[in-house]
Amino acid sequence: MQLTLKIWRQSSAESTGFFEKYIVDNVTADMSFFEMLDMLNNDLIKQNKSPIVFDHDCREGICGTCGLVINGRAHGPLKGVTACQLHMRTFKNGETLTVEPWRAKSFKVIKDLAVDRQAFDKIMEAGGYISVKTGGAPDANAMPIFKENADEAFDSATCIGCGACVAACKNSSAMLFVGAKVNQYAQLPQGQVEHSKRVKNMVEAMDSAGFGNCTNTGACEAECPKEISISNIIKLNKEYLKFH
């Protein structure tokens, strides 16, 4: 296959970015999207041009490091799939693909397609935990938990913190990210003690990091590679109202 790529190039947070066009040949269907970028980068280096910087690590769709907007879609066109798991069989010979970084005020571009997502860690610092010290935990079976609750907690906990929800949202809202963490702990008895404080602190941290609010467009749910339900946002709002 041959593809035309229009890739966002930006040398630093301060500089102005632009799209650069690349023609890539010899793309095969079983290649991953990132393997195609690897191949392009290898060629660019050989031509003494600067390779395209993009964040990636596990390439198994679980670490949350990668994130690109491909043809306007966070993580590309497939549902429930991270950019690193996207394979070229998804695309057709001769297609043009536009590749951009996450665009949000709270995620500054570091270089090319890599962005700074430390705002997520700041939100987590504000309350994304249960305050339990190492040692002294009771026997794990001492506290039975309804399977339904455990399963729902798990569904929320599958968030990989990639930021696609923010990138997809016209308001750059992080409410799906925050809602998923709040709801994970809300489902579990061990999460109850700090619950009200957690909701308040995480929402405040989210606001002060500059993320917008939810206006129910559902883009986050549609683009989340882990298909986390927008009902997490409804629950977040409910919990927030309950206590404040």
Binding site: D139, K147, F154
Partner: peptide, 16 residues
């Protein structure tokens, strides 16, 4: 025990 106390959502049986 430690991980369960932290809220790690381990798989559970119907009895909890």
């Amino acid at each position: 025990d430690q991980c369960a106390a932290q809220g790690v959502p381990f798989a559970r049986e119907y009895g909890g």
